[in-house]
Amino acid sequence: MWRFLVLLREDLDAARRRDPAARTTSEVALAYPGVHAIWSYRVFHRMWRVPALRLLARLRSQATRAATGIEIHPGAQLGRRLFMDHGMGIVIGETAVVGDDVVLFHGATLGGTSMTHGKRHPTLGDGVLVGAGAKILGPVWIGDGAQIGANAVVVKDVPARTVAVGVPAVVRQRPQTAAPEDLFADPAIYI
C-alpha cells in the first residue's frame, strides 16, 4: 500500500513540476483530468492482472474515459511520473509500454495498426515528449529522450534523443548544443 501511495504522490509532483499553470498540489489533485486518469489506470491495471477481473477493469476504465476524455487500456504498461498536459483525447492502447518521466500532450495517440493478437502498440522510452495531436502507430520503439512534434504521424522507430516531425514523421538530429538533460524543450527549436 505504501508503494502505491508513493506512486500517487509522484504523479502529483510530476504535474506540479511540468505545468507552469499548476498553483497548488490540491488544485492538481482535484482539477487535473490527466492525474485522475493515471490514478484510475493504476487501480484498473492491478485488476487487469487478475483474469477474473478483466471485464470489470475494462468497464471501469471506460467510465474513467467518459469522465476525463482520456482512454488508457488497463493492459497498457505505464511508467512513473507520466504527465498528460490537458489530456483530452489521449488514447493509449492495450500493448503500449510507456517509460518513466514521459509527457503526452492532448490528442496524442499510442495506437495500433493491426488487428492481430500480440504486440501492436508503441513502446516509449524514458523522458519522451509527445506533442499535441501526434499519432504513434504500431509496435514501434521511441528511444529515450526523443521528442515527437505536434501532429506528427510516427510509423517507424525513432532513435534516442532525436526529434520526429511531419506526416509521415521524419527523424531529425538535435543540434550538438542541446543539453542532454533538456528532455522537455520545445521541439520546434530543433527544426
Rank of each mutant, 00 (worst) to 15 (best):
L56N: 07
T64N: 07
P74R: 07
E71A: 07
A67R: 14
H45E: 11
A31E: 13
A37Y: 00
E27K: 12
L59W: 10
L56R: 10
A21S: 03
A67M: 10
F44Q: 13
P51S: 06
L53N: 08
H45D: 09
R17F: 10
L55N: 14
I70Q: 03
Q62W: 12
V43L: 13
A21G: 01
R49M: 04
A22Y: 00
Q77R: 14
R60K: 14
R60T: 14
L56E: 08
S40Y: 09
S26R: 14
V43Q: 10
W48Y: 10
R42Q: 05
G69S: 05
Y32V: 06
A67S: 11
W39Q: 14
V50M: 15
V28H: 07
A66S: 15
V43K: 09
L78C: 03
A22Q: 03
I70G: 02
A37P: 00
R60M: 15
H36T: 13
A66W: 08
V50P: 08
R54M: 01
P51A: 04
R54Q: 07
A29H: 07
R18S: 10
H45S: 13
Q77M: 12
L78N: 05
D19H: 09
G75V: 02
L30T: 09
S40H: 15
Q62T: 10
R54T: 01
E27W: 03
G34N: 03
G69T: 01
E27R: 11
W48M: 06
R17G: 13
R18G: 09
H36M: 13
Y41R: 07
V28N: 09
A52N: 13
